[in-house]
Design a protein around this nucleic acid. Structure first.
Lengths: 356, 356
DNA sequence: CTGTTAGCGCCTTCAG
DNA sequence: CTGAAGGCGCTAACAG
């Protein structure tokens, strides 16, 4: 490894001079600058970031904590984050919690020990986890992403999940549906799921309709178990004509499960999601959903974090715009009655072969 | 910030003693151990990784370079990598090249400057990029992921892309297709695409069929442009009855485009992909593809990297098993002639509205 | 404008 | 078994 010392010797000057040249200090002669750069080239020298960090207390890196990398919505935001970070010359250290509240805490500790200058996080639940508090206690700038902070003093970039789901519910109602169900991931592992459900309830009541109890399905797990779980309520006599899902991945899985159960989407069941992942536009039928600007939210969160680090901004909640993206999965209600839908679907016969 | 010094004072001992306790050195009394740990707890002390790194020359982090985070196949492998790294107490620094060969080099430099102990990379093209050489020159352990190394002395974890595509082509041929096309991303930005195409050619020739020229479509870009590009060859009188795509994402986009053009999959056109991303099982029709164990490949690459770092293994190419995953997108050829397929699809009429 | 010097937080011989 | 001291690579006063 070649150090700044080697460069200094080669260039015939002091290490401080080399340091100045490298950091573009104004007080330096063109001649020495050239000499130093030449030495740098010849020796193939590259600053040792870690030596620098020890001195400056800056690591040029920040941490990112998300529930999962394989959910496209987080992958998208991570893509935006990575791009914005790289552009600013920052590195990112990526960790996942896999929706495990306990791991949120561990992950943040690890990030802190590594000396990240800031943290971007999507926690399992800001209400119970309180990881943001630990960050605040140690004066490490941080921005919540997707989460809706409990404490307004913590910075966040999100969409108005409640309003967005209310809007989406409105779209479903506008298509003549009155019997609208709600399926979500486990509430305990996602504040978004809870908030979105509240938005659904808002709009249902507003329209004089009765919000139905949310069906929580374990999101991760084997395909077979999932289909079985879904079958349990899709085959019930109370099956709704339209189903809102707390996120797109869930919606897409539900559509696949429905197909397995012999139900046609949207003829027998309309489905809508939330997130606006790309894949939703390519599936058949295309998925109606709420589009949140994931990549852009990631970029914005990075900018916000930098502003926080520079002390240029105070924590605040930044609400990004959401839009309704129509899709063939959401159609007008036919007849609009449960009876009609049930008649159309030969449910019982097909179920037996999929439910153990 | 509380340092090891503070702990030493609080515990009434020397810094070195604290260090020994923290690092589990055997030469230490139970009594002092307890005293030190108490001090650590009371002060909420956490080792400063960067101070330690400077001394030990170990950062406890390795770098990951992939083309894109938003392609599910890379997201999956990244998920596996992250998990394996975390389990081993390592952090990962993630960078992307966005399929830009120039950025491969930059990214590796940045990783090196940060002092990563190793690097996992999927480069744009190992033939032209030669980034692995730079890593080797600086004695930084590294493992190629997905890439097929030119130089057998560089470690790699991949599947046998050529053989796998040959297998897939065999499945298509077995279903009665003889007119089989190949679509891929730009060859210049993916060695996999080239190698897979070669596998297709192998099997076609073996079956006495004429391999068709690969159609390279720019993978990134607007939806409209993509459909237009695809329309150009899907509407040609020479349209094949089956289409092999160099990866799943491309295949799924092609299926969506085909639908837009009024073609039915698989009735008018069979489609197969490569990668085995989850979404492929949920789309309608489900996508026939080659499944490569992405997450597991990521994990294996991490293990390989660790072995390399410990000097326990020599570089080698680790070939992971691939499997054919059937899907409804690939059906038996009907009649098996171009004419039949053309008759079935009302192509010309529908095209005009999608091609500018 | 440039060189000297003192650490940043930690680990690790080397004495005691 | 424990303490003292040097130094990892670098930056930032402070002199010159």
């Amino acid at each position: 490894m070649t150090t700044i010392q080697d460069v200094a010797m080669r260039a015939g000057c002091a290490i401080s001079t080399v340091s100045r040249v490298l950091n573009g200090s104004p007080h330096t002669t063109e001649a020495t600058r050239v000499r130093v750069m030449a030495a740098v080239d010849e020796l193939g020298y590259r600053v040792n970031t870690i030596g620098r960090s020890l001195k400056t207390q800056k690591t040029g890196a920040f941490g990112v904590l998300i529930p999962s990398i394989t959910n496209p919505v987080f992958a998208s935001s991570l893509g935006g984050i990575e791009e914005a970070a790289r552009t600013a010359g920052y590195d990112i250290i990526v960790t996942t919690s896999n929706y495990d509240p306990g791991r949120d805490g561990e992950a943040v500790e690890a990030l802190l020990a590594r000396g990240v200058e800031g943290v971007l996080l999507t926690v399992t639940d800001p209400a119970t986890g309180r990881v943001a508090d630990r960050l605040a206690a140690r004066h490490v700038p941080h921005v919540l992403l997707y989460n809706q902070p409990i404490d307004p003093a913590v910075a966040a970039v999100t969409v108005d999940n409640r309003r967005a789901t209310a809007d989406l519910t409105g779209e479903v109602i506008a298509r003549g549906h009155t019997d609208i169900g709600y399926v979500s991931g486990v509430f305990g592992s996602s504040d978004r799921a809870r908030i979105r459900y509240a938005g659904y309830c808002d709009r249902m009541r507003e329209a004089g309709l009765k919000p139905q109890a949310a069906v929580e399905v374990p999101f991760v797990g084997q395909d077979r178990d999932f289909v079985a779980a879904v079958a349990r309520f899709l085959n019930a006599p109370t099956r709704p004509t339209a189903l809102l899902c707390s996120n797109d991945l869930l919606a897409i899985r539900i559509m696949a499960a429905a197909r397995t159960l012999g139900l046609r989407v949207p003829e027998d069941l309309s489905v809508a999601g939330f997130d606006g992942i790309d894949i939703g536009r390519m599936v058949e039928p295309s998925l109606a959903t709420i589009l949140q600007p994931a990549a852009d939210m990631g970029r914005q969160a990075v900018q916000f974090l930098f502003a926080l680090m520079r002390g240029e901004r105070e924590p605040a909640t930044l609400i990004m715009p959401h839009t309704f993206r129509p899709g063939r999965s959401l159609a007008a209600a036919r007849g609009g009655t449960i009876a009609g839908a049930l008649r159309a679907a030969p449910a019982p016969a097909l179920n037996r072969k999929t439910i153990p």
